[in-house]
Each structure stands twice: as C-alpha cells, then as structure tokens.
Design a protein around this nucleic acid. Sequence first.
DNA 1: AATCCGGGGGT
DNA 2: ACCCCAGGATT
Length: 351
Amino acid sequence: MEFPNALQNWYLENRRDLPWRSTRDPYHIWLSEIMLQQTRVEQGLPYYTKFIEAFPEIEDLAAASSEKVLKLWQGLGYYSRARNLHETAKYVAYELNGKFPGSYKELLKLKGVGDYTASAIASFCYNEKVALVDGNVFRVFSRLKGIETPINTTEGKKLFKKLAEEALEKVNFDRSTYNQAIMEFGALHCKPANPACEVCPFNEECVALRTHKIKDLPVKLRKTRVKKRYFNYLVIETGNEETAIEKRTGKGIWHGLYQFPLVETKKKISEKELRQNELFRQYIKEKDFSVEIFNPEPVIHKLSHQHLYTTFWRVQVKEQENTVPLESISAYPVPVLIQNFLNEYLPEDYK
DNA sequence: AATCCGGGGGT
DNA sequence: ACCCCAGGATT
C-alpha cells in the first residue's frame, strides 16, 4: 500500500476528536492554528474553548479590548500571537467585511500567519492542494527516509517541504484528511521520545529504525544558551487596598502584560542594596517607608531562553503613583510568574 | 542565518 | 538539565 493510504488507515482508527476537526469555518481553524503554534494540543484546547465562548464570531474578537484578549490568552505564552490575533481579527472584520482570505497566498499576508498556518487554513477550510510542514512532519519524514539534514536550516526547510509536496502528489483521497493524518501520526505514534516502532505500520520501510537512528532523528542544530536575570518586584502597599502596577512595553518578554514595579539587577541583592538602588529610589519617592522580603529564596521562573531569579519585596509607603485597587487586579493580563505570586498574596475575594 | 519569544510536560 | 511542542517576526 502506498504511504498515504496506510497513513489514512492509521488515522481513521487513532484520531483524536478535537473541536476544530468538526468545522471548516476559517475563523475557528485560524484561531486553533494560531493557538497551537509551538503549543501542545492539550495545552491549547482549554484556551480554544474559552475564546470560542467569549468570541463566537470574529466580530466579537475584533470588538474586544486588547486587555481582554491578552487576559484570556494569559498563560499560553508567546504573547505576540495574541496581539497579532487581535489585529488580524479587526482587519478581517472591518476591512474584509468579516470574510477570511480564500487562498494560501492571501492568507500568508495576515499578521501572525506564516507558511505553516497559511497552508493549514487553506487545506482544512478550502481543501487547497498545499503541503503542511510542522514539527511532526519533519520528524516523520526524517525518520522514515533517514534524512540527517538539520531541520532548522534553509536547506532543511526546503528539502522537507519538497518531500511533503511529493507525498501529497500521491494522495488519492481527501488532501486535508491526509494533512491532518500525518501530523496526528507524528504527535501520537512517531513521537519524539519512545515512538511506537514495534507496532508501526511503516516499521519495515523506516530507514531510521533499520539503522538504529530513531533517537538521532530529526537532526536539529542549536545551542540554547540560557540567560540568567535577577528580578526584584516591588509589591507596594499604601494601606488602602491598592498597589502599583505597570505595563511592559517595548521589546523583550511579556510585551503588553502588567507587572509590579521592577528593579532588575545584575545579581541577587540584599535589602540594603535594594534600598540604595537608583531605580528603586525612582519608584519610592518617600523617605519613610519599610521594606520586607516575601521570599528569601528567589522564585526561579524558567523561560526558553531565560531563567528569572525573582524576589518579591513588600514596600509600605504612605502614597504612591500608578496604583490600582487590589480588587480590580485580576482583570489585568499578567505573566504566570506574577499570577503565581498573586495567588498567594491576594485574598480569595480578589482573585 | 541567528535570535527572540512562554509555558508546560516528558525523559 | 535538556528536549519538544499544529511557528513567526525581527535582527
């Protein structure tokens, strides 16, 4: 049997029932694809459900405040996705009269939509003849054919795109089903670790299995150097149930999210060093204040490229600028690092 | 071509 | 620790 047909048989027996698989509405498909970029299905699924409930139509998403969109996105990471999602929703709703672009080429022009996502929408919604190449497809083809070209190079991307297109040419059934199938196969069967080779429908033709290179494929070049940063968050207490927060702007992590006033330092600092810090003194103008540490051992918040050694400091003052009621703080989108602290700090009523 | 951008889960 | 995840944008 040809590869695509055997793959389809596997898929029909093993596919998960996922909400975006029972629709061809481009709004729903687009939303799911943006959410699933570099994100596991299990992690994205509850967010998808929340968004569909909050924004049944793309016009609802377009009309929402960016704060509400980010708040619903909170915890999913890669927040530029949420910002691009919102901008694209407004563009489609107001400039295109709610009608999604109808081809791969046009979809590719949307913010936050690259080669994979444009292909996915075009395939699933319009059954356009386009090949999908995601992390699963890289893995399946690299193992099946024993390809050692690194997948994160220009050459690798071109090669695997070509392989995917050649395979698609041999598909004599619904192409969108085929595209779903190869990704599902990579996600559930030809997994990164401990793939189910013993019961694999392709274990006789798989080059990597024959040459004992399953664990070595796909090849990916990278030296991830993790940068250490030291955050000191000022939890400012004014005595009237308010605290100061600020919005992160500019480049860097967590753009658009809120946090406590931040004093970043080169290393872990003492209370004395904090009191003398220049940025601290810009935040705390009064002479009379008290400082108390919340967590003597820093909270280590781990991101892909950064480890954040974080200390929260209680600073009691008489008056402070840029404060908001503790009662309203749960409405602001915040990083998980801040949310975890708030879950300890806030009274139940304010969560 | 490299680097950045999150958070969660697996090994 | 390190890897990966229905990638894309920026430098």
